[in-house]
Design a protein around this nucleic acid. Sequence first.
DNA 1: TCATTAAATTAACGGCATTCGGTTTCCTGG
DNA 2: CCAGGAAACCGAATGCCGTTAATTTAATGA
Lengths: 214, 214
Amino acid sequence: MARPRKDQALDIRARAITETIRLLSETDARDLTLARVAAAVGCRPPALYGHFRDKNDLLRAVHDAGFAWLYVEKLDVCADTQGDALARLREGGRAYVRFALENPALYRLMFDPPPDSGLDVGPFDSDSDAALKSLGFLRAGIVAAQREGCLPGADPDDIAFTLWSAVHGAVSLLLQGRAPATETDPVVAAEAVVDQVMAFIAATRATTPGGSDA
Amino acid sequence: MARPRKDQALDIRARAITETIRLLSETDARDLTLARVAAAVGCRPPALYGHFRDKNDLLRAVHDAGFAWLYVEKLDVCADTQGDALARLREGGRAYVRFALENPALYRLMFDPPPDSGLDVGPFDSDSDAALKSLGFLRAGIVAAQREGCLPGADPDDIAFTLWSAVHGAVSLLLQGRAPATETDPVVAAEAVVDQVMAFIAATRATTPGGSDA
DNA sequence: TCATTAAATTAACGGCATTCGGTTTCCTGG
DNA sequence: CCAGGAAACCGAATGCCGTTAATTTAATGA
């Protein structure tokens, strides 16, 4: 029972990633042991080292898989709401909120990884470019909104970062239980922030409908 | 050399907290070992257990000390800018940004603590009330801004959470190096978000001076 | 002065990430 | 069909870290 036979072979790499994502619904990344991952996969801890350099390498793979997942979720939203630019922005924000609150530990791993994992290094460069693509969606939505008269003269990149900051900050605070206690449902509270920001953007629209200038 | 003599006694509890804060400028909370803290304090690791129940208890104390510090920083700002409500909000935001970016690991410990530390439990209840007080500042600033005609008809608590989310999100993303690469200086990028949100708020002011409706 | 308590210390335990050496299975060339 | 090397895994071992136990020394109070 050293090397497994071909018929009972196991795609350890793929299984490790999916099982880790599943285990993240029960346990935070830092508290997840390789022993538990190995047990879920169906192997022993050292076997993982044949497919990942170390624990951080596994977490990085999960991190990347998370971004890929988030990207397809946003793609879905994009397909659903082709009409209004503001509506698309709003729905994109809601999808983001849903993803974060439904997968808290995975979201944490993606956006607040342990500083020694080599995941927090670069400004996007090191990410699977899914993060960049997601940001691209956001930027495109803002440019579209500007075409409809909102945010005259603003830099889309600045607005994108502000928007993203607000939504990320909201879910981040909510995941830590740090919301003003008025709201009981985190999803409602986070969506309230999305709506609030959308209202801010809508308020910058040139007051006379039809007017369109920079 | 078991029990130290009175003249060479050591306020281990206080020293542990300040030394931990200092060490957080080099190492993240989760990577900080009690051995290193003990060495900085001038004792052995088990000695810490006479003053803290366990490592998380030490981290909680540091967490609370961080909030107390943030609170006095905000007090300073409050004293400096007594005039304009929007200016006070902006300066408060800048002080927050400065604090976060100058003390990244401490900020992380305060606002994104490891989920098993018992620090992420309650909506503020369990915090040293410094967090509540900081939020109170924010809310007061918003109410003042409303008195000046901004944000007509909005719930100050909603606005406060949105504002806080935006600033927290911005520093949080910047600390992870996840800003759009256009900005090199994190402080500048974060302050841009603050300014952007302030602009949003200012834009909600009734356009005709004196007019006020929902 | 001497027992008791307080506050550290060194020693020990258990858990975890990671490494090492061995063993079984696959694959390739003769 | 059959070496023999490479590949893939396992059990055992290492070292660090949080935490607890046992031990030592200093202060205290009768």
